[in-house]
């Protein structure tokens, strides 16, 4: 029934043409993001004719241009504005242009997020642009792009381990700071033990559903901090790092759902003066 989507069919058709047409392209130098052959199709499908402005004052993408490992490329998306009730980044669309599933994730933020920032790890099927599009609360769109050459050799986006069934869904919150301070935004990392199976693998023939995390939602004291719909362009054992702004003692609560409709929960109470879990 999912196949009824005309959009998906169109995008698929477009991709078949593109993938076939440029498979011999040999990009040694960093190409111009405006001249990408892939982007117009993805852009049209996701944003239609809406204007997308240069994101240099609103959103930045940080990563190593020569990525160490195609299976796990750390990428940071950093909002450049204060999240205020009047003016804030509401959604961030993260796109790996040349992955067969280009939309790696759509993340939602609020004024309570403190800052719209997200760090995660991505799989790369090929040398590709990564694009982050910020959608403001008034609907304006801003984009930042970076070119990534995931290393050659044996480096591959496929998984290494089989994760034992009883460990799938295990989660941890980790902090870079030892303590928090009320009223001050602080970075927290959510780690999820999960194979995040890729439909790119050859043994998924379309009948078998690959098992991957499809949504993540984190609240603090019942208020949304960050949520996202994600895909298997995210590396196995998905990791997300983002800000929240605690005003008093409260519970960080993560709810994660995968394509097998399994729902996993993890909670951590944090307060000022109590050491935060780290490494």
């Amino acid at each position: 029934m999912l196949w009824k989507s005309t959009g998906a069919r169109l995008l698929m058709a477009a991709f078949l043409v593109l993938v076939t047409g440029v498979s011999l392209a040999n990009e040694m130098a960093e190409p111009d993001p405006a001249k990408s052959q892939y982007w117009p199709t993805i852009r049209q499908m996701m944003f239609g004719d809406r204007e997308i402005l240069d994101g240099k004052d609103v959103i930045h993408v940080y990563l190593s241009t020569r990525a160490a490992d195609a299976a796990s490329v750390p990428v940071s998306i950093k909002g450049q504005i204060d999240q205020t009730p009047d003016h804030y980044i509401k959604n961030i669309y993260l796109i790996v242009e040349r992955n067969p599933s280009p939309a790696a994730g759509i993340f939602h933020f609020t004024p309570e997020s403190g800052r719209a920032q997200l760090e995660t790890r991505l799989r790369f099927e090929d040398y590709s642009f990564v694009r982050a599009i910020a959608e403001m609360n008034d609907g304006t769109l801003y984009m930042a792009s970076r070119w990534v050459k995931a290393a050659g050799g044996c480096s591959a986006p496929g998984g290494r381990f089989r994760i034992p069934e009883n460990l799938i869904g295990q989660m941890k919150f980790k902090f870079m700071d030892a303590m928090l301070e009320y009223g001050k935004p602080i970075l927290v990392q959510l780690m999820i033990r999960h194979p995040n199976e890729s439909a790119l693998a050859m043994d998924f023939d379309g009948d078998k559903v690959p098992r991957f995390v499809r949504s993540v939602k984190v609240t603090y004291d019942g208020k949304l901090v960050m949520s996202g719909e994600v895909d298997f362009s995210i590396s196995d054992n998905p990791s997300f790092r983002f800000f929240f702004r605690p005003e008093k003692e409260g519970v960080l609560d993560a709810v994660v759902e995968d394509t097998y409709d399994r729902v996993y929960h993890h909670r951590l109470t944090v307060s000022e003066g109590v050491p935060l879990p780290g490494g």
Partner: peptide, 11 residues
């Protein structure tokens, strides 16, 4: 999210 997944299955 679902949309992206659709595309990937196609591909």
């Amino acid at each position: 999210g679902t949309f992206g997944y659709l595309v990937s299955l196609a591909l």
